[in-house]
């Protein structure tokens, strides 16, 4: 079975690192980026199975990155999980229109992130 690929995006190095370690330890090939532009480039290049991105990042937010991914046929279907430390919930309509698979609040549990990714991938495989 081919290794599953994940892209982790956060401008906070320690967050990227901890999620990446968790996913690598559980059989994922992980690519990392600390900004939206690099993340978009890596997504186009490697077509990951799932993207885990921070919501609030300089230059390009997680939502803006998702919008960009949805406009490209190569990345339009990649499931996106948002990590957010924002004091308010993400607009449900926006979440639905951008097909955001899940929103996880910071502080988050790496265990929960992994579990969520597994669920999303299982649903896609079933379809």
């Amino acid at each position: 079975m081919a290794e599953r690929k994940a892209l982790v995006v956060d401008d906070e190095f320690h967050i990227v690192q901890v999620v990446a370690i968790k996913l690598r330890n559980n059989g994922f090939e992980v690519f990392t980026a600390d900004n939206g532009s690099d993340a978009y480039r890596l997504a186009c290049e490697h077509r990951p199975d799932v993207i885990v991105t921070d919501y609030q990042m300089p230059a390009m937010t997680g939502i803006e990155l998702t919008e960009k991914l949805r406009q490209n046929s190569a990345t339009v279907d990649i499931p996106v999980l948002l990590l957010t430390a924002r004091g308010f919930a993400i607009d449900p309509q926006q979440k639905e229109s951008l097909r955001v698979a899940a929103c996880l609040s910071k502080p988050f549990s790496p265990r929960e992130v992994l579990h969520c990714i597994e669920q999303v991938l299982a649903q896609r495989a079933a379809v």
Binding site: E12, V18, R86, K106, P107, P110
Partner: peptide, 27 residues
């Protein structure tokens, strides 16, 4: 400010929580 402070405070807290859990899970 509330959003910013929430983000700024939660970011280190997220790291603390995540790395502590990784230690507990022997990752």
């Amino acid at each position: 400010f509330v959003n910013q402070v929430s983000h700024e405070l939660k970011t280190p807290l997220a790291s603390i929580n995540a790395y502590a859990e990784m230690l507990v899970d022997s990752e």
